[in-house]
């Protein structure tokens, strides 16, 4: 998208330099995630990638997104990763040379290459409805293009969208968070000892199940 934006004109030399540098940082970070032997280094490389993406967001005047990117992803999520890595033990080495499926690495490389190539071809050749004209204007500008949107008003715009067009999505996300919490508790909870015993059935259930059993026997 940025490429087409640059090609479309309006990009100054500093723009291009900032884009090139942050793109290099992003790609280096991504390679670092995959190639690092030490999981902590991999996680820190991920932080690098996320910072690079944040810079790209700032360059496109999406300041709020950039801040969220740094706070939520680089701040919270990667720290969580690090916690998990530390819990499991940093010094434990996995034998990543062993291949469970023979030939999966070269195949994966080929598939990824094809996917990336087709994606680039797609993005260059396709007609975008969103994008270029929406970058500096109001968010979701194609829906109501008339309203003026200053670059600094994007948080207000986001809030407005959240409580109008995406009100229901916003509410439904609450259900998603509830289910995530309940699910996590269910999976992580330790079972009480008394549940392990076979005699969990309460005595008042016995007659009913027995009568049904007799029914079946007849």
């Amino acid at each position: 998208m940025t490429l087409t934006l640059l090609a479309a004109g309006g990009a100054t030399i500093p723009d291009i330099i900032v884009f090139a540098v942050s793109a290099a940082v992003i790609i280096m970070g991504a390679f670092g995630v995959v190639t690092s032997r030490n999981p902590v280094h991999a996680a820190l490389s991920l932080v690098m990638t996320l910072f690079g993406v944040a810079v790209l967001f700032i360059e496109q005047d999406a300041n709020f997104l950039a801040a969220v990117q740094v706070i939520v992803y680089a701040g919270a999520i990667v720290v969580l990763f690090l916690f998990v890595i530390m819990f499991l033990g940093v010094d434990r080495r996995e034998n990543i040379e062993a291949e469970p499926l023979v030939g999966q690495r070269p195949l994966a490389l080929i598939f990824v290459g094809v996917a990336v190539a087709s994606l680039v071809a797609l993005l260059v050749s396709s007609h975008w409805v969103t994008g270029a004209h929406g970058v500096v204007g109001p968010i979701n500008g194609s829906v109501n293009p008339g309203s003026p949107g200053a670059p600094s008003g994007e948080v207000a715009q986001l809030g407005k969208q959240l409580f109008t067009t995406y009100l229901f999505a916003f509410e439904a996300t609450a259900a998603l968070l509830v289910i995530a919490v309940v699910g996590a508790v269910v999976l992580a909870r330790r079972e009480r000892r008394d549940l392990e015993k076979p005699s969990v059935e309460s005595p008042d259930d016995e007659p009913s199940s027995d009568s049904s059993e007799k029914e079946v026997l007849r």
């Binding site: 229901f168 999505a169 439904a172 998603l176 289910i179 995530a180 309940v182 699910g183 999976l187």
Partner: peptide, 21 residues
């Protein structure tokens, strides 16, 4: 709305992942 479809899909699925276990 595709966003709602996605949220519904996730609410359905995440609960089912936990139920499966």
């Amino acid at each position: 709305d595709l966003v709602i479809v996605f949220l519904g899909l996730e609410i359905l699925s995440i609960a089912l992942y936990v139920l499966a276990a």
